[in-house]
C-alpha cells in the first residue's frame, strides 16, 4: 500500500497541517455551527435556533439584501471596466520594448500599495470641498458636474468601483500580456492571407486564443470584488446609509459592531455559498463561449 512508502513524507506535512487545521479548518466548520445559534459572542451560553438565522437573513434583512445588490453592482462595474481596460492596454503594450516595459511597470504600481493607502489617496481625490476631482472640474468650468463623490448615496459605490479599477487594472494587464505573447504568430499570418480586417483578426484569432487568460482575469476580478473589504472599510465603512455596504463589510459590522455572532455566521455561510455559485457559473459561461468560437 502507498502508506508505507509515503510515511516519511507525512512528517513534511505535519507542521503546516496542524496550523491549517487549528486556524483555518476548525474556524470554517465552526462558522457553520455558530450559524445555527443565537450566540452574541460575549455570554458563555447560547441556544440552538435551527434555521431561524438563515430564514431571517433571506427574508427579513433588508440591509443584507442591499449589501448583496451593492456587491453585484460593484462587481459588474469593476468586471466590465477592469477587463476592458486591461485587455486594451495589454494589446497596446504587447511588444517588449523599453517604453512598453516601463509603462507596464508604471500601471502595475498601485497593486503594491495597501488598500488603506489607496483609500486615503482616493478620499483626497473625492473630497467634496477641497478634493482634486472637484477642483479640476471647477478649473475646466464644469462646476455642474461637481459631486459629493463618496457622500452621495446614488454614486458612492461606483466611485469606489473606479478606485478598485485604478488599483488593479495594471495587475490584470500583466496576465493579458502573457496570454497575448503566447499566441503563435503564424495564426495572424494566416488571417492576413485570408484578407482579415483588424476586427476579424481580433475576433477569430486574438479572442479565442486569450480565452484562458480572460477566464483567469474575470474569475480573479470577481473574487477581488467580493473581497474589497479593506478598501471599502477604509473609504466609507459601508456608508452613507449602507449605500456602499458589501457582504464582507456587513458581516463584519453584524459581528463586531452589533455582536450578533450567530446571526453574522449565517450571513458568512450564505456569503460563501454566493461565491461558490458565482465561481461555478462563471467557469461554465466562459467554457461555453470558448467551445462556440
Amino acid at each position: 500500500m502507498h502508506f508505507r512508502k509515503n510515511k516519511s513524507l507525512f512528517l513534511f506535512i505535519v507542521p503546516g497541517l496542524i496550523l491549517y487545521t487549528l486556524f483555518f479548518i476548525v474556524p470554517t466548520l465552526n462558522a457553520v455551527i455558530y450559524s445555527f445559534t443565537d450566540w452574541d459572542g460575549l455570554s458563555p451560553d447560547f441556544t440552538i435556533v435551527g434555521f431561524e438565522n438563515y430564514i431571517n437573513v433571506l427574508t427579513n434583512d433588508s440591509i443584507f439584501q442591499k449589501a448583496f445588490f451593492n456587491n453585484i453592482k460593484f462587481m459588474l462595474f469593476v468586471l466590465v471596466f477592469q477587463t476592458l481596460f486591461s485587455l486594451i492596454f495589454a494589446m497596446f503594450l504587447i511588444k517588449n520594448t523599453k517604453t512598453n516595459i516601463f509603462l507596464r511597470a508604471l500601471y502595475f504600481f498601485p497593486t503594491i500599495l495597501s488598500s488603506v493607502s489607496v483609500a486615503f489617496i482616493w478620499t483626497f481625490i473625492y473630497d467634496p470641498n477641497m478634493g482634486v476631482l472637484n477642483t479640476v472640474l471647477d478649473s475646466l468650468n464644469l462646476e455642474f458636474l461637481r459631486q459629493n463623490w463618496l457622500g452621495n448615496q446614488n454614486i458612492a459605490i461606483y466611485s469606489i468601483a473606479v478606485t478598485q479599477v485604478w488599483f488593479h487594472t495594471g495587475q490584470m494587464l500583466i496576465i493579458f500580456v502573457a496570454g497575448l505573447q503566447a499566441i503563435p504568430k503564424h495564426l495572424y499570418e494566416v488571417a492576413d492571407i485570408e484578407g482579415a480586417r483588424k476586427w476579424d483578426r481580433f475576433r477569430f484569432v486574438t479572442w479565442p486564443m486569450i480565452a484562458p487568460s480572460a477566464t483567469i482575469v474575470m474569475a480573479y476580478t470577481t473574487i477581488q470584488s467580493f473581497k474589497a473589504f479593506d478598501l471599502i472599510f477604509a473609504m466609507t465603512r459601508g456608508g452613507p446609509n449602507y449605500s456602499t455596504e458589501i457582504l464582507a463589510t456587513r458581516i463584519y459590522s453584524t459581528a463586531f459592531r452589533s455582536f450578533e455572532f450567530g446571526y453574522a455566521s449565517a450571513q458568512s455561510v450564505i456569503f460563501m455559498f454566493v461565491i461558490a455559485v458565482i465561481t461555478v457559473v462563471q467557469f461554465r459561461l466562459l467554457k461555453a463561449s470558448r467551445v462556440q468560437e
Binding site: Y20, P27, Y34, A248, A255, F256, F261, F271
Partner: peptide, 20 residues
C-alpha cells in the same frame, strides 16, 4: 484539502477565528 482554503474568503471564518 490545502488548496480548498483559497476559495474561502477571510470574512467567512473571521468570527470563530477571532474567538479562537
Amino acid at each position: 484539502l490545502f488548496t480548498l482554503g483559497m476559495m474561502v474568503p477571510a470574512q467567512v471564518n473571521m468570527i470563530p477565528l477571532y474567538q479562537l
